[in-house]
Computed example of a mutant assay.
Amino acid sequence: MTKVAVISANGRVGSLVVKELVERGYDVTGFGRKAQNTTVAQTYIQKDLFELTKADLAEFEVVVDAFGTFAPETLHLHVEVIKHLTALLAGTKTRLLIVGGAGSLYDDPEHKTQLVDTPDFPAEFYALAKAQTDALTELRKHDDVDWTFISPAADFQVDGKRTGKYILAGEELTLNDRGESIISYADYALAMADEIQNGDHIKERISVVGK
Rank of each mutant, 00 (worst) to 15 (best):
1 M>E: 13
2 T>M: 12
10 N>R: 07
10 N>A: 13
12 R>E: 13
13 V>I: 14
16 L>D: 02
16 L>R: 15
24 R>L: 13
27 D>Q: 15
30 G>A: 13
37 N>P: 15
38 T>L: 14
38 T>Q: 04
40 V>F: 15
41 A>Q: 14
42 Q>C: 03
43 T>D: 14
45 I>M: 15
49 L>F: 12
50 F>Y: 07
51 E>S: 08
57 L>K: 08
62 V>C: 10
62 V>S: 10
64 V>G: 10
64 V>F: 15
67 F>L: 05
67 F>M: 08
69 T>Y: 01
73 E>S: 01
77 L>N: 11
78 H>F: 02
81 V>R: 05
82 I>M: 00
82 I>L: 01
84 H>K: 04
97 L>W: 11
97 L>N: 11
101 G>L: 05
103 G>A: 12
104 S>T: 10
109 P>H: 06
111 H>A: 08
113 T>I: 06
114 Q>I: 04
116 V>I: 11
116 V>D: 09
116 V>R: 15
118 T>A: 06
126 Y>F: 13
128 L>M: 10
132 Q>T: 03
135 A>Y: 08
144 D>A: 06
145 V>Q: 07
147 W>R: 05
148 T>Q: 08
154 A>N: 13
154 A>I: 08
155 D>W: 05
159 D>A: 11
161 K>R: 04
162 R>K: 11
164 G>W: 01
168 L>S: 04
168 L>G: 05
169 A>I: 04
169 A>V: 04
172 E>Q: 11
173 L>C: 07
181 S>A: 08
182 I>A: 04
186 A>W: 01
188 Y>L: 11
188 Y>D: 02
189 A>P: 02
192 M>A: 13
197 Q>F: 07
198 N>W: 05
200 D>T: 11
201 H>A: 06
202 I>T: 02
203 K>P: 00
203 K>D: 02
206 I>R: 03
